[in-house]
Write a protein that binds this DNA or RNA. Structure first.
Lengths: 246, 246
DNA sequence: TTGCATAGTGTTAAAGTAACACTATGCAAA
DNA sequence: TTTGCATAGTGTTACTTTAACACTATGCAA
């Protein structure tokens, strides 16, 4: 039995990961072969992970479902950040060709609710079911379908703002991480180079970044101490003094 | 000719205004009269300003249209902040009664894209066409329909965060305002009491809050100097040094 | 003329930020 | 075993920002 979908509503997920000291996005290949000549590829580019919403399905559940399907992960950081609904967002020639071939009864205007997700990319196993899905560095994206360049840009802006105020960067790192890894994360997402000593001083004042009695293994240099992030400690210790800074 | 709408998609606007040193929301009365007994009112409460989206209409245009209809204003501050799509958001008994009577062919699940808007309430004229629409203080809201209490709460959270970082509070004040009015605005939205001298010192350092050679008129006490806000100056002078503050 | 209501003004201690360079450690290669 | 290499880890200081605090000034109305 096939579930019924809203044919004018979809969820798109911008899934961020961090590898080689660079922020990456997960993309899926979209390819269309000429029906008359199966050797000929009419269209080949990449898109975000998106699906239509089932009738009766909560938005957040739809996003969770898509994530689970594409990464195998549950319980990961996921947040709605914007909804895209320009009347012309699917009207580019190549997107229309693809939609007509793949989704004949889609609505001419599809509103897409976009979520962004932060994952520890080392936990995402290359999926047999989705071999065409992979990580792409944010600074070197391939050709993208639909309005996905815009969606990614807005997700990135949102991430850059949010990472300054809330401890979400940890979601991109393994459970155990070093302070240098953390700094690399901030440096690369923000496109700046923070001062190493000031950064470490600041982090060591954060009670929710907890040093372990454990060091890196198998590195060809002085091994660094590893830390974990505790959301519980964060919640308990964060202070709520609003400061106006325009 | 009637325009076709997406029957599973709507836009709701949380319109904020500032009066009597209190943040207000604009609400519209929703009333249902018993068809068998026109003297009997079955349902009476309030809702946000919302409408279905026309097919082919951009989301932002739909929000703009609603605002124009309800307030008479254009070119006002308007921003999408969240999309609400729980499967059960319209399923409360009273809402179902109302929907069946008013919108017989509505979809059982309606996704609503919510915008929040900041207006100078002194410019909103009591509208003959919508006499049932008015301002309600955020701390003393009447009975509300649908999931609108939740939508208003999330709008308010969003506003509280945003007003600390971006100069949007001015949108709620008349073009010319005094520093005391501005402080009252912050105090009341944030629910705190900022120090008067520190606040004035901070504001006087903001180049985009420009003092005029003009004083308040017709006040029964020492008249205050009036100021204007310049978005242009703001854009030119704002600095973009990110600071991490978790 | 007085009272009232609100406008407007400065100083100081404390905290936070930014700028800056060297030593320590563990492994690997010679 | 020694040396080099790569990265870890550490403090001080000047400067800036914030927080706490109370009195005088002005314009109108009674």
């Amino acid at each position: 039995m096939k579930k019924k979908v809203h044919n004018n509503l979809s969820v798109d997920c911008v899934i961020f990961g961090f590898e080689n000291n660079q922020l990456h996005v997960m993309l899926t290949k979209r390819e269309l072969v000429d029906p008359k000549d199966p050797g000929k590829i009419i269209l080949s580019d990449y898109t975000l992970q998106g699906q239509h919403i089932y009738i009766g399905e909560n938005l957040y559940d739809a996003a969770t479902r898509i994530l689970k399907e594409k990464t195998g992960l549950s319980n990961i950081y996921l947040e709605q950040f914007h909804t895209f609904g320009s009347a012309d967002r699917l009207l580019r020639e190549k997107d229309q060709v693809w939609l007509k071939a793949t989704f004949p009864d889609i609505s001419p205007q599809v509103i897409s609710v976009a979520y962004f997700s932060l994952v520890d990319s080392s936990l995402v196993k290359p999926d047999k079911k989705h071999p065409e899905t992979g990580w792409f560095p944010i600074n070197d994206l391939p050709d993208l379908g639909f309005d996905h360049p815009r969606i990614i840009n807005i997700a990135l802006e949102y991430l850059r703002k949010k990472i300054l105020r809330e401890p979400i960067g940890f979601e991109l790192l393994p459970e155990k991480f070093t302070i240098t890894q953390l700094q690399n994360l901030y440096d690369s997402i923000l496109g700046i180079n923070l001062d190493k000593r000031n950064f470490r001083k600041k982090v060591s004042q954060m009670k929710f970044v907890i040093p372990l009695d454990e060091k890196q293994q198998k590195v060809p240099h002085k091994p660094a101490r590893v830390h974990i992030f505790s959301w519980d400690v964060y919640k308990k210790t964060k202070e709520e003094k609003p400061t106006i800074s325009l």
